[in-house]
């Protein structure tokens, strides 16, 4: 039967039990509190599991202290929850592993991410920590867009990529810092080599 031909049934809307929307309270590491709808929370796998495990009732939400998210600051968390509220009820995308990964940035997300790189960086960490797949996708897409039309030298500066030489120097420095004796041994070895000795030991 087609949709057009389906019989129309009058429904008394008042008779339908309306489930009361539940808003959870979260607190950032700088003690800023946010109220987020249950549906919006479903965008975050981490938070969704957390609230499910807590099993709060409406009264619990009001009476108990806000759920603390200790490694995200208020400014970032505000963006995260704004995004979740706007995209609540949307399906969570499944990664098919394709390369290049095609992601479009919707207008709302583009405006939301019109922020400085420091905050974008924190937003990506938050999206990763809270496991918000689509927010991670769009924020990563914004970072990927920074590479458009750049040369390796420009890309190294945009993405703050150290050169191979800098990498090696940092590695050496880290090794030396970890084991100060290593440098002495190396110098001794070099000295013996200069003196023509074949065996170090």
């Amino acid at each position: 039967m087609s949709v057009e031909n389906a019989p129309v049934v009058d429904v008394d809307e008042a008779a339908i039990p309306v489930e009361k929307k539940m808003y959870y309270r979260f607190e950032s590491n700088d003690k800023k509190e946010f109220r987020v709808s249950e549906l919006a929370i479903q965008q975050s796998e981490t938070l969704n599991r957390l609230v499910e495990a807590m099993g709060y009732t409406s009264e619990d939400v009001e009476n108990k202290p806000a759920i603390a998210i200790e490694n995200i600051d208020g400014k970032t968390l505000k963006l995260v929850f704004q995004w979740c509220e706007h995209h609540k009820g949307e399906a969570i995308p499944v990664d098919d592993g394709s390369v290049p990964k095609i992601v479009e940035i919707p207008e709302f997300d583009a405006k939301l991410m019109d922020i400085d790189n420091g905050l974008l960086f924190k937003l990506i960490w938050a999206a990763d920590y809270l496991n918000i797949v689509q927010l991670l996708n769009v924020s990563c897409k914004k970072v990927a867009n920074m590479a458009q039309g750049k040369t390796p030298a420009q890309l190294r500066r945009v993405y703050l990529l150290p050169s191979d030489e800098e990498d090696e120097a940092a590695k050496r420095a880290a090794q030396e810092a970890q084991d100060p004796r290593a440098r002495e041994v190396e110098e001794e070895f070099e000295e013996r080599k200069r003196q023509g000795g074949n065996s170090f030991f």
């Binding site: 394709s98 390369v99 290049p100 990964k101 992601v103 790189n117 974008l120 960086f121 990506i124 960490w125 999206a127 990763d128 920590y129 991670l136 996708n137 924020s139 990563c140 897409k141 970072v143 990927a144 867009n145 920074m146 590479a147 500066r157 945009v158 993405y159 703050l160 990529l161 150290p162």
Partner: peptide
């Protein structure tokens, strides 16, 4: 766009960004 510390991104995000680059 100014500097962005790509190598300090979480592993999953760094992979995501790399995968989103065209050839």
């Amino acid at each position: 766009v100014f500097e962005f510390p790509f190598l300090n991104l979480p592993e999953k995000a760094a992979k995501n960004v790399t995968r989103m680059l065209d050839t």
